[in-house]
Simulated scan of single mutants.
Amino acid sequence: MGEVVNVIVAVAVIVFIVRWATSNNAPSQPSPSSILGFRPKNVTPEMVETIHNMFPDIPSDNIRYDLLRTGSVQITTNKLLERGFLPAPPPAYFTLYPRAVEPANPAARPGQAQQPAAAASKSKSESLISRFHLEDRVIASASGVSAAPEEAGGKSVWEENAAKREASLRERKAQMILAARQRLLAQQAAQQAEPSS
């Protein structure tokens, strides 16, 4: 009978030691909800990219943190539109989600097609005047035949068909571009005249 008691005690001690050793070796990882203070929603990279494309100046980490809270692109977008910013995530956030590396070139984001260097330089050098084919009007305004900048854009009149509305919009855009150009030239002339006086 004494041997049976010794065997039972030995087995109990071995089980206790094995449980103690395995529980200390496996580090207990806190859950994301205990670290962040809320139960995070499922966030896909496409959700973050969608908002980042609309608001490229907002860091991806701020977007992901807010999406973890809301779980909705629409709610996060509305917050951005109302406030103009998203709060930065707390330091505990970065223990779960390493800091996102922002690409130096916004056109180099994943999921977007790369522009050839020639096309990128062409689009940068192209002005609004050449994009909207207003070269003839610039020449005419240089000769003094132009509308006052205050009248740029004018009052819009609702046309009866889509083609006329589109033409009216195009004309108002052209007037606004030309008026902005005139204001810029006047401002530059005033700045050049200022140092000489």
Rank of each mutant, 00 (worst) to 15 (best):
118 A>V: 15
82 E>Y: 09
87 P>F: 03
80 L>R: 06
42 N>W: 04
88 A>Q: 05
75 I>K: 12
115 Q>M: 05
80 L>C: 07
44 T>D: 04
118 A>L: 10
119 A>E: 08
128 L>N: 05
72 S>L: 02
111 G>Q: 13
61 D>R: 10
71 G>E: 09
122 K>H: 09
130 S>M: 14
135 E>A: 14
67 L>T: 00
107 A>R: 13
84 G>F: 06
113 A>D: 02
77 T>H: 09
103 P>H: 15
108 A>L: 14
105 N>C: 10
77 T>A: 06
77 T>N: 11
133 H>S: 15
72 S>K: 04
107 A>E: 14
75 I>A: 09
40 P>Q: 02
126 E>M: 11
39 R>S: 15
92 A>I: 01
62 N>L: 00
134 L>Q: 03
46 E>V: 03
73 V>S: 00
108 A>P: 02
65 Y>G: 01
40 P>A: 07
58 I>V: 15
54 M>A: 13
116 P>D: 13
69 R>K: 10
40 P>W: 08
53 N>H: 05
136 D>H: 15
69 R>G: 00
45 P>G: 08
37 G>I: 04
101 V>E: 15
90 P>G: 00
104 A>C: 03
127 S>Y: 05
121 S>C: 07
141 S>K: 08
116 P>Y: 08
104 A>Y: 04
87 P>H: 04
86 L>R: 06
124 K>I: 12
61 D>I: 07
120 A>R: 15
126 E>T: 10
86 L>W: 13
123 S>P: 01
47 M>F: 09
140 A>E: 14
140 A>H: 09
116 P>K: 12
121 S>D: 12
60 S>L: 07
134 L>Y: 04
105 N>W: 03
115 Q>C: 01
83 R>C: 07
136 D>Y: 09
120 A>N: 12
68 L>D: 07
111 G>L: 10
84 G>Q: 05
56 P>C: 08
112 Q>A: 09
115 Q>N: 02
75 I>N: 09
132 F>H: 11
62 N>T: 02
95 T>E: 12
